[in-house]
Simulated scan of single mutants.
Amino acid sequence: MLPPVVVGVDGSPESLAAAEWAAREALRRELPLRMVHAWNGHPHHADGEPATAVQRHLGRRSLRRAEERIRVVCPGVRLYDEQVEGPATAALLNAAERADLLVLGSRGLSGFTGFLVGSVSLGVIARASRPVVLVRAGEEGEDERLPADHGSVSTRTGYRDVVLAVDLGDPCDEVIQFAFEAARVRGARLRVVHAWQPPFPLNLGPGDIGLMNDLQQVEEWQGFLSALIGPWRDKYADIDVLETVVADKPSTALIRAASGASLLVVGRRTTERPLGPRTGPVVHSAIHHVGCPVAVVPHE
């Protein structure tokens, strides 16, 4: 069987929004959807049975509620569910190993942008070997679509841009391919963004590219970006691609670029660090300040 789209469900509004988004993504990718509810045991009980029965009942109720929502918005999705004993982070990481991608929900911060990311989601994002998509509470199908001609929301219009963050100093095929595939299944434009910061003059050495003016540097980086994306343009010839180079902090540039997008795709290096797994500053900024769903794609 094809690897499914997996979504973590716990009965909260944010997990229900994630379940609906995951169902739409499963349909786009022509994959089954697997809902996973993880619950923690209570070892202080002598036999554990009373606590286990309650946990299973609550888990079944959460899964049933999510299924009812999904059947309304995505009746054609192939759906199955599973309850697993926690801890939740370990259970979700295990489920992600057999998934095409894992979807998690998050409460929104004040206003309309940003995520309030709990320890489970952060632990999964920092350690997962498969792509993880974070979906904000309140995310609905029309949010990923362009407005209708008269300005109202619609689920029948085209998709908003997919935005891909590219670090030209460390490009990765897995991240780029994920973004192109996301744009392909949506029929959306892919906007590829690279941000660079002009070096501090005292840090420049002889012959450094930083001695050029800003316009020359933009042209230089634009050439590098075009060369990187060129083979992917050829492979995905039907996708409209917009390449953008901006002189700004990467986190600031991504927040601006993702405004009005249907999905932001960022990469996360899986190399172990001395202090353990980390999301990195760009991923951290994206999941805390971007309003659209964020796909974090691990790579070596």
Rank of each mutant, 00 (worst) to 15 (best):
D240L: 15
V241L: 08
V241D: 01
V241Y: 05
L242I: 14
E243F: 10
E243Y: 05
E243I: 12
E243H: 06
E243M: 14
T244C: 04
T244V: 15
T244K: 01
T244Q: 06
V246T: 15
V246L: 12
V246M: 13
V246Y: 13
A247V: 08
D248Y: 07
D248W: 01
K249F: 13
K249C: 03
P250C: 10
P250N: 12
P250I: 11
S251G: 07
S251C: 10
T252E: 12
T252C: 03
T252A: 15
A253D: 11
A253P: 11
L254G: 08
L254N: 05
L254D: 08
L254C: 13
I255V: 15
I255G: 05
R256C: 08
R256I: 11
R256D: 13
R256Y: 10
A257R: 04
A257I: 14
A257Q: 06
A257M: 10
A257Y: 02
A258M: 11
A258P: 09
A258C: 15
G260S: 02
G260R: 05
G260K: 03
A261M: 05
A261F: 04
A261L: 06
A261E: 00
S262P: 07
S262T: 01
S262Q: 01
S262A: 14
S262I: 03
L263D: 04
L263T: 03
L263Q: 03
L263N: 05
L263K: 01
L264K: 00
L264S: 05
V265S: 06
V266T: 01
V266L: 00
G267S: 03
R268E: 06
R268G: 07
R269G: 11
T270E: 08
T270V: 10
T270M: 14
T271N: 06
E272C: 00
E272M: 08
E272P: 04
